[in-house]
Design a protein around this nucleic acid. Structure first.
Lengths: 204, 204
DNA sequence: ACCTGAACACCGTTCAAGT
DNA sequence: ACCTGAACACCGTTCAAGT
């Protein structure tokens, strides 16, 4: 079992352990010494797989985006859901993810190394989409069914993303009062999206 | 001139210099040695005014919130603006502030010491309001003039705040593409707020 | 209300030398 | 593909002793 680290598992084990650490302490206070001690390897072993602490956590961030994308994709590809339900459920899933892994989420959307974030889509299989691309596709669907007014889908997608991301951020880092009202806030946000983009609402 | 630091200005100078540093480098890479070298004081002089680096930056965060509040308050109290204009202009000002001082903004809304953030209102003069309170007041005004549907003003205020904050975050840390579309994104976000909350839009 | 200078514990990272 | 052990530069912070 310990032998396994000697062959091909250490890289993976480091990423998984780093994610586990992030659930208990912030990025800044995680040390390579602490990580390696827990994995029972030497501190220098990290440098066989990553050139620096930062590069290790780039891999962690990438993993975080992959998982978020999988979660969202699962909702998008669920054939039993209407488009309205998908929009609602993707928002909920997204926010749930942020609340489940707050420090990982902070790292993903913080400012530590954005170069990699731009790559993060191309790294994946060529038939895959970014989490954002899924949202854009959903907006296009909504426009086709006349649920959303027909403007540039990217703009609507970014606005929705900003709202959800903002809600997630405020729930994680904001005033405790906000967290108490979680359910109602999600509902209000959703109603803001739906009625705001609905073409029948344009009689002033 | 140098004498002034010996009397009462060092605390203030440290805060101002720290904010200036934040415009050029991230919080993590700012060192107390670098700060004090530039101010021509000894490294240990900081501890006459702050018990730690963290406490110094708590003061910086507080200053950041004060300035943001002033900026928003100025718009709110401008009698020549309609409520719609105020909503639009507060959003723009807020986002402009985040783009002008990205690292300060990250610090303000990151997770470094939220204890102080909860105090940040009470520390100010008793006749003052939080930036958020101003937004709530504006929402109440909008409800009175029938621009917004009458639900709990807090919920609408948080939803708006989340959207603006999310936009600011994505503009600062997101894909460069988003920054290029800044003007249109702000416009789309505003339209999402207005039409979404507008009571006349409720015919499905 | 500052100064100097030395020291401490703790980092990430490097290197030499092993298996 | 790991190990040990020593070392380096750089932190925040503390302390003793000054003015």
């Amino acid at each position: 079992m310990k032998q396994s680290y000697h062959h091909h598992n250490l890289k993976e084990a480091l990423i998984e352990e780093a994610i586990a650490f992030l659930e208990k302490q912030p990025y800044e206070s995680i040390t390579i010494r602490g990580l390696t001690n827990l994995l029972k390897v030497s501190r220098t072993a990290v440098y066989r797989h990553f050139s620096s602490k930062e590069e290790l956590f780039q891999a962690v961030i990438l993993r975080g985006f992959e998982r978020l994308k999988e979660k969202i994709e699962k909702v998008y590809k669920n054939p039993s859901l209407t488009i309205e339900e998908k929009i609602a459920k993707i928002g909920e899933s997204y926010i749930a993810y942020a609340l489940d892994f707050p420090e990982l989420y902070r790292l993903m959307f913080g400012d530590k190394l954005k170069q990699l974030r731009e790559e993060s889509c191309e790294i994946q299989n060529s038939d895959n989409q970014c989490a954002f691309d899924i949202l854009v596709a959903l907006v296009v669907d909504a426009q086709k069914e006349n649920i959303f007014v027909e403007v540039n889908p990217m703009e609507q997608a970014v606005a929705i993303w900003a709202l959800i991301h903002g809600q997630a951020s405020l729930l994680i880092d904001g005033h405790p009062m906000i967290l108490e009202q979680k359910e109602r806030l999600i509902k209000t946000g959703l109603s803001m999206i739906m009625k705001g983009f609905k073409p029948t609402s344009t009689l002033t």
